[in-house]
Amino acid sequence: MEIGLTHFLVVSTMVFLAGLFCVLTRRNAIGILMGVELILNSANLNYLAFSRYSSVNYDGQMFAIFVIMLAAAEAAIGLAIVLGIYQTFHTIDVEATDTLRL
């Protein structure tokens, strides 16, 4: 069986749903961050797949690289924020940190 565009899209949809589920259900801030990473990666998959199967240029691949970079930056800042939250609240449970100002 030839592996086509549809297979990639199915995989990516599953990864996306896993990520979304993770983001919506986890109470741990780091878990949420991981869910976000999953969603971003599902998007990357889509980019690469579309780039490979429908277009002659490398736009999609370029975007994927941007997204990876962005994800790295986002993870760095996100973790720093989480660290800050931990220092303030001594927990990283997002249910417990709903105070908008101290």
Binding site: L24, R27, V94, E95, T97, D98, T99, L100
Partner: peptide, 14 residues
Amino acid sequence: LQTGNINAYLYVIV
């Protein structure tokens, strides 16, 4: 409306 609860926001978004 601003609960500060990230999950709540995410639910609203989705």
